[in-house]
Design a binder for these strands. Structure first.
Length: 258
DNA sequence: ATGGTCGTTGCACGA
């Protein structure tokens, strides 16, 4: 079973690239972020023609998350399932695919440490942890994947000195991510690759992709039963090349068995 | 020299 995540930065602008990539890589499950579509505008038929069921939680213009699956898509829950008023922004969707409870997340960017949006980011991360802990056990097969807008470690940053005082690396947001991992999840790519310079996002400007200036902020977190099945993981940086790419590359994880 | 692009929308702003 091949599971992938990709922040597509507008599915309307990217649907051709996504179709091409699906045909090439053949994931069983693809979690997408930043579809920037209303549910009405989501191209479900396009994905159905490629053999995928889909679930989308969108708001139009901004945000928007989706899950595509060839291996079943059950018990779909849009937004948080914690009994509190729903988050105003469309940033997570959860479904069960072949026995794995999978959440596609688009964590708030934060903008800057002194911005209201950064407080929203931290509160959102705490709520995500609560959502996961209250709806699943670390002994279950659980994946939380997407654009976390957090670089877990300085290895995941092209130049840590340029990120001092910035979002994506602050101790508070890294602590939130660590707390989710402490609950029982592992950053799967790091089970297979220890080295630095593995990035999943590069700014469109200044030739950052070509110059190797990126961040690893798109993560696949999984509980131990999923990690035990994992056989391979890679960031597909080829998908960042060519005409009209997203500014993010997909991250792929392969699992043994169904 | 501290820029640079893309997406949304609409002539600015978010990432």
């Amino acid at each position: 079973m091949r599971v992938a995540t990709w922040n597509v930065n507008s599915l309307k602008a990217r649907v051709g690239r996504v179709e091409e990539w699906l045909a090439d890589v053949q994931p069983d499950v693809l979690c997408m972020q930043e579809t920037k579509l209303s549910d009405d505008a989501f191209p479900a038929l396009t994905f159905q023609a490629l053999g995928y069921e889909s679930a989308h939680h969108g708001q139009g213009q901004w945000n928007g998350v989706a899950i595509l699956s060839k291996v079943g898509l059950a018990d779909v829950v849009a937004n948080f399932a914690d009994g509190r008023p729903p988050d105003a922004e469309a940033r997570l969707i959860t479904a069960t695919c072949a026995g794995v409870r999978i959440t596609s997340v688009y964590v708030p960017n934060g903008r800057s440490l002194d911005h209201e949006h950064y407080r929203y980011k931290l509160a959102w991360l705490a709520r995500l942890r609560n959502h996961v802990a209250n709806n699943s056990s670390p002994l279950d097969q659980v994946i939380v994947t997407g654009d976390f807008n957090i670089a877990p470690d300085d290895r995941d940053v092209y130049d840590p000195s340029k990120m001092i005082g910035a979002t994506h690396v602050s101790p508070a947001e890294r602590a939130e991510l660590a707390a989710l991992c402490d609950w029982g999840m592992t950053d799967v790519l790091r089970r297979f690759h220890d080295q630095d310079k593995l990035y999943s996002w590069w700014d469109y400007r200044a030739g950052d992709f070509h110059m190797g200036r990126g961040l690893r902020i798109d993560l696949v977190l999984a509980t131990a039963p999923v990690v035990a099945r994992s056989t391979f993981s890679i960031i597909d940086r080829n998908a960042r090349k060519g005409t009209s790419p997203s500014d993010h590359a997909p991250v792929i994880v392969d699992l043994a068995g169904a």
